[in-house]
């Protein structure tokens, strides 16, 4: 059977690794390629690089950076941030990214998901959704709303509806990032993760809030996630990837232990 995936997220800003707290303050915490190589050797299953300000500033992701990563990391990695066209996606795929994440641009023009899926395949097309709790209403029946531009702009779109639409449009995977939980280290937004995971037929990745190994365990068990994104919990050396995996393995979650 497939193993549950542990995915490290590296927010890159001007070639440096940054970490945001509730998407607002960011601090420089080192060289992203060095960190990525360290996680790779320590058994991370996948990596995701977000160029965190690319989308707000309408900049492109650095292709050279992606090529450097691809020359050192021999596991799948995805990139996101500021992808606005099929050409962007194709260039990143050719530069070595296994998957490409779309977020804000797909909310603004949903056909983008279909276009990218046709060009590089659904399995390489990831819809990344930033989600915030909202009052339940006829417009937002699930009580979770999609926000864009790095969490700064509410859209009035229901997160569950958007997840299903993303799948129909051709996304091959969903990243569900809780803005409320992001950077808090208090655990993933489990209800949201489970709601999405149970209503689509494609893999769902939990994102935002990991602070303890138990949070990962709960994302996979209660949250029904196929993968979980970690950031702070490994960036500051509180836990190694190995330790997180050992915890999961000891608690009966199937993870890749030989590497």
């Amino acid at each position: 059977m497939l193993s549950k995936r542990l995915i490290a997220c590296l927010d890159v800003r001007d070639g440096k690794l940054a970490k945001s707290v509730r998407f607002v303050d960011t601090i420089d915490i080192g060289d992203p390629i060095e960190k990525a190589s360290q996680y790779y050797r320590d058994g991370i299953d996948e990596l995701v690089f977000y160029d965190i300000n690319a989308s707000r500033e309408e900049r492109d992701i650095d292709i050279e950076f992606v090529e450097k990563v691809a020359a050192e990391i021999f596991i799948p990695f995805s990139v996101g941030g500021g992808i606005r066209s099929v050409e962007d996606a194709t260039r990143l795929r050719l530069a070595g990214a296994e998957k490409v994440n779309v977020n804000t641009a797909a909310v603004k023009r949903k056909e983008l998901i279909t276009e990218i899926a046709r060009a590089i395949g659904s399995q390489s097309t990831v819809l990344s959704m930033d989600v915030r709790r909202a009052d339940t209403s006829s417009q937002i029946p699930s009580g979770y709303e999609i926000v864009i531009n790095d969490g700064t702009t509410p859209t009035g779109i229901d997160a569950l509806k958007w997840a299903r639409m993303g799948e129909e449009l051709g996304a091959g995977e969903l990243v569900v990032n809780s803005i409320d939980a992001d950077g808090t280290k208090e655990g993933y937004e489990l209800e949201l993760t489970r709601l999405v995971a149970d209503s689509v037929g494609i893999p769902v990745i939990a994102s935002g809030g990991a602070g303890e190994p138990e949070h990962l365990y709960r994302a996979f068990t209660e949250g029904h996630a196929d993968g979980a994104i970690v950031a702070s919990i490994v960036h500051y050396g509180e836990y190694t990837c190995r330790q997180l995996k050992e915890y999961l393995d000891n608690h009966g979650v199937k993870v890749r232990m030989n590497y």
Partner: peptide, 9 residues
């Protein structure tokens, strides 16, 4: 179980 079969096995 999802198709494609994607991940580590």
């Amino acid at each position: 179980l999802k198709i494609p079969h994607m991940g580590w096995n």
